[in-house]
Design a protein around this nucleic acid. Structure first.
Lengths: 342, 342
DNA sequence: ATGTACTTTGACACCGGTGTCATAATGTCG
DNA sequence: CGACATTATGACACCGGTGTCAAAGTACAT
């Protein structure tokens, strides 16, 4: 009992003495096929180590049981390291996909380049998950394009007013509030924010607004002089903090738009001889692994990546099934560590 | 100019006034088609937002321009975190695939369960990359199975004598040597190893051997009493170190089979009131991000994940093309940090 | 014996491309 | 002008499954 190359359903049909149609039905456990026939077919299939050709199957059924994820890189130009937060998301999304019986196609994208978002168009995936920081301005027109092609997709990220896509995101505003409240409880009066607080980075902007408006309600202002622009890298956080210090901005508490930024900030503060948390309280955002390892360990707003990955997948699957879904906001959680506990 | 649903090559043929065959040729820039016809076809295709159906295309050509990666989980049972080293590998493999014009199918696997290594059999991928720690004993029979099916695959991991597969791996033996030499230079006399030094974890075993045999040549023994068993998690490293201390084993230097283990070990040492590096020198393996963030920062044997990912991909592609390839050993590099610099 | 229902099976079209072969059109040379 | 090479195109089989439809076989009631 041998075949040239991989076994096909015709090979099985031949050896089982039935038609190819019956083989196809038997292998999918159709109730239309006789119990004994089914057993026989399965037996031969096993012996031949038969596996359904997904290309043929997908072609016929017009679906792929596959999701695709597009990961946008930070515009750091640094090839070596990927933002650990997104790496975690990638992990939890992979897990969630496996749980749902879907495969996952992964690709990195540079946001400035042409998207290879052809997965769904080319029938390789039933839907797409978009993930990554990036300039939202670039982003928007692309989304519009996906929509016009009736592509099924969900985004991780900021829930921007009027944004045309469906999103799963952390309650960034609420996260900013948590940070502000914590500073207020600690009696801090001079707060700064490190990160891009512009519409180019909606996530960061929303975090900042939750932070700023909460402070405001307690009579603390966090104006232009108290913001230092930074993208989500350690280096960027380091330099931003450095320039604040160089400009003689006085502050006793620092909220960073991400943990990587916070880690860079802590380095700059230490170098300036400032003690953490005595002189400056620091709060980050994400709760990446490193935030627990640095000294002092970093108080941070946790985003639940496990839940996030799950929600992205289940929402996308609902969308594919044609169900109505809405944006999902995940609750942030403040993780208390040494950088704010004196 | 409209189509119901997604546009096919027949739609383009219709609107461009040529046959479907010609469309197919034109879109793949076959030299057989007239310049003007090609331009016209491309124009229509663009207008209709046409994308080749990969399922049909793959079915016909019997290849997929896709690689699959199977990631074996650590047997920790901990759902939340994935070993950051493998996450990094995943990232670099994704990058390498993109560079070669291949897509990547990702799936997590539990080593004890049935592998869903059907990607290649089911024509979803042209080849498979296997990645992950795991009990090598389980592993081996599965590999044999893949081989017998003529599946193209490469493995990351230990280059075990007589192992039937092609591998890309770090020179684990050399890495162990580097650690031993460094301890010797520092004048350390009592060395311990934390990790599974058995054939169940060939990588760890090889690291240990390089370590032990180098010490031996300098008259330092590292016997059974100086080994504590651990899998690659922080917890496991913590407990293993704890039990060494509880057993009153005296040591002034500790080599951990992985950074995660080393981080756990450092925690245990600190709790026992030992100073690092004064009382105990510590060296890890991997150079994950956290090793640079902990206090004291961790001296470690770096595995070049970027290069590793690239080699895995290029070797697999060679294999697929039917070329002869051999196992690849990547040079390790000792990264000096505080945990060994007094 | 005839009709009806149900079970089980095979033949065949179909998914959307790719590759081969035949054919038509044009150009070249003796 | 006929023989032949060259270029450009269309017709068609094919990849390996899935779904529809007709039909054969069996059971049971009339």
């Amino acid at each position: 009992m041998k075949t040239k190359g991989k076994a096909t359903s015709f090979d099985i049909a031949h050896f089982a003495g039935v038609s190819q149609s019956t083989v196809s039905r038997a292998l999918r456990n159709s109730p239309l096929v006789n119990e004994e026939t089914r057993r026989k077919v399965w037996e031969v299939a096993k012996k031949l180590n038969y596996k359904v050709d997904k290309n043929a199957s997908n072609l016929r059924t017009q679906q792929s049981a596959t999701l695709a994820i597009l990961l946008f890189e930070d515009p750091t130009g640094d090839e070596s390291q990927i933002n650990p937060f997104f790496l975690n998301m990638l992990g939890s999304i992979t897990r969630a996909c496996a749980k749902e019986g879907y495969d996952l196609l992964v690709s990195f994208q540079s946001i400035s380049q042409d998207w290879r978002a052809e997965y769904e168009d080319s029938h390789r995936a039933d839907g797409i998950i978009l993930l990554g920081y990036g300039d939202y301005m670039d982003y928007q027109s692309r989304l519009q394009n996906l929509l016009s092609q009736n592509t099924k997709f969900v985004c991780w990220g900021a829930n921007v007013e009027g944004r045309p896509d469906l999103t799963v995101s952390c309650d960034n505003y609420g996260g900013g509030q948590l940070a502000a409240q914590h500073f207020i409880e600690k009696g801090r009066k001079n707060c700064v924010f490190i990160g891009d607080a512009s519409e180019h980075s909606p996530e960061f902007l929303t975090r900042f607004k939750g932070f700023q408006e909460t402070l405001q309600r307690h009579g603390i202002s966090c104006g232009e002089r108290h913001i230092a622009n930074a993208i989500s890298t350690e280096d960027s956080g380091y330099h931003a903090t450095h320039s604040l210090l160089a400009n003689n901005v006085k502050f006793d508490s620092l909220f960073a738009a991400s943990d990587l930024i916070a880690i860079g900030a802590i380095k700059a503060l230490k170098e300036a001889g400032l003690r953490i948390p005595e002189d400056v309280n620091v709060i980050g955002f994400d709760n990446i692994a490193a935030s627990n390892y640095i000294t002092p360990s970093l108080t941070t707003v946790q985003q639940n990546t496990t839940l996030a990955g799950q929600m992205l997948v289940t929402n996308l699957l609902s969308l594919i099934r044609g169900e109505d879904i809405t944006d999902t906001l995940l609750p942030p959680k403040l993780i208390l560590r040494q950088s704010t506990s004196q």
